[in-house]
C-alpha cells in the first residue's frame, strides 16, 4: 500500500511538472505567434515605441530577454520558493511561495487574487458535489432496483430533463422563484463561512442546487445502470441464498459494488470543476476561480491565466490521486 501511494505520488508530481512546462511554453508562444511584445500581456499596453531603449529596459526588467530555460526557472523558482517583485522605483513587493507573479492590471499579487477566489469555488463545488452525489445515487439506486416501474420512469425522465437544462436556465429560474417571487432568500450576496455561516449558506444554496441538478442527473443514470448490472451478479444470488434481508443484499452487497466505478468519475468531476464553474459563478455573481479565469482571459492578463491554469491542473491531479488511493481502499483487487 505504501509503495502504491509513493508510486502514484511520484506520477502526480511528474504530471504537474509537465503541466507547468506546457503552460509556460504556450504563454511564450502566444506573444511570438501574434507578433506582440510580451510586455503587453503583462501591463496591458506597450508604453514605449518598438525598438526604443525604454522598451528594451522594460523587457529586460521582466526578464523576457533571458534564454527560455532561465525564464522558466525564474517562473518555477517563484512558485517553489517565492520571490521579490520590484520595478526598481516603487517599494519591492514580497511574493511568498507559491508565487505566481504580479498582475499589473489589478495591481495585486496573482496569489492573493487566487486565494480570494478559491474559498468561493470550494464552497460551491464541495456543497453541490455532496448534493449531487447523495441525490443522484439515491434516485439511481431506487430506479435500478425496480427497472421499468413507475418510479424508475419518473426518475429517469426527470434526470433526462435535468441533464438537458443548462445552468443559465435553471439558475435564473431558481432566482426568480426563491429570491424574487417567494422572497425566501432576499439577500444572496456571498459571505465567507468563517465570518457569517448563515449568510454563506443563504448565498450558496441556489448555486449548489442548480449545479448539482446537472450532475445528479448523470449520476442517477450511471448508478441505475451499474445497479442493474450488479444486482444480476452471481454474488448477489449468493447473498440472497445466505438468507440475508433485502436491505443488506442491496446496500452491503449491491450498492458497494455498484458505487465503485462512480468513485472514479466523482473524483475527476470534482477536480475538473475547479476553475470551470464559470456559468454558475456568473449567474449567481460569485467571485470564484471561474470568474477570475474568464475576466483575466477577457483582459489578456497573462500572469493570472497562468496561475489559474496551474491551480486547476493541480486540483485535477490531486483529485485523481485521491481517487486512486480511494479505489485501492474500496476495491481490494487493485492493491498489488
Amino acid at each position: 500500500m505504501i509503495r502504491f501511494i509513493i508510486y502514484r505520488l511520484l506520477g502526480a508530481i511528474v504530471v504537474i511538472w509537465i503541466v507547468s512546462v506546457v503552460t509556460f511554453l504556450i504563454f511564450q508562444a502566444v506573444p511570438l505567434l501574434s507578433h506582440t511584445n510580451p510586455v503587453y500581456f503583462y501591463t496591458g499596453k506597450v508604453p514605449f515605441k518598438p525598438g526604443s531603449p525604454q522598451l528594451k529596459a522594460l523587457t529586460h526588467r521582466f526578464g523576457f530577454d533571458l534564454p527560455l530555460y532561465a525564464q522558466y526557472w525564474h517562473y518555477l523558482s517563484g512558485i517553489l520558493f517565492g520571490q521579490t517583485i520590484t520595478d526598481g522605483v516603487s517599494v519591492p513587493i514580497k511574493c511568498p511561495a507559491p508565487c505566481f507573479g504580479y498582475s499589473f492590471r489589478q495591481n495585486e499579487l496573482v496569489g492573493t487574487l487566487i486565494a480570494q477566489a478559491v474559498p468561493v469555488s470550494l464552497s460551491l463545488i464541495v456543497g453541490s458535489a455532496i448534493l449531487w452525489l447523495v441525490g443522484g445515487v439515491s434516485v439511481g439506486t431506487i430506479s435500478g432496483l425496480r427497472p421499468g416501474s413507475a418510479i424508475d420512469r419518473i426518475g429517469m425522465t426527470g434526470s433526462l430533463a435535468a441533464v438537458s437544462l443548462p445552468i443559465f436556465f435553471t439558475g435564473p429560474v431558481l432566482l426568480l422563484i426563491f429570491e424574487y417571487t417567494l422572497g425566501w432568500l432576499p439577500d444572496v450576496s456571498y459571505a465567507p463561512i468563517t465570518q457569517n455561516p448563515v449568510q454563506w449558506l443563504r448565498s450558496m444554496i441556489l448555486p449548489w442546487v442548480s449545479l448539482a441538478f446537472l450532475f445528479a442527473a448523470l449520476y442517477a443514470r450511471l448508478t441505475r445502470s451499474n445497479m442493474l448490472e450488479t444486482m444480476s451478479e452471481d454474488y448477489i444470488r449468493t447473498a440472497r441464498a445466505k438468507g440475508l434481508d433485502r436491505r443488506t443484499v442491496v446496500i452491503k452487497h449491491g450498492l458497494r459494488a455498484a458505487l465503485t466505478p462512480i468513485v472514479t468519475i466523482f473524483g475527476i468531476d470534482v477536480g475538473t470543476l475547479v476553475g470551470t464553474t464559470v456559468i454558475t459563478e456568473n449567474v449567481f455573481n460569485l467571485r470564484g476561480l471561474g470568474f477570475l479565469t474568464i475576466s483575466s482571459i477577457q483582459q489578456q492578463d497573462l500572469p493570472i491565466i497562468l496561475g489559474v491554469t496551474i491551480v486547476a491542473a493541480v486540483a485535477l491531479v490531486v483529485a485523481n490521486f485521491v481517487v486512486d488511493i480511494l479505489y485501492a481502499v474500496v476495491d481490494p483487487r487493485v492493491t498489488v
Partner: peptide, 17 residues
C-alpha cells in the same frame, strides 16, 4: 439455515470486495 446452496463458479459467486 435449512437449505443451503453451492454455486457453479465460486469466483463470481463470492463478493470481490
Amino acid at each position: 439455515s435449512e437449505i443451503a446452496m453451492i454455486f457453479q463458479d465460486p469466483l463470481s459467486s463470492l463478493h470481490p470486495f
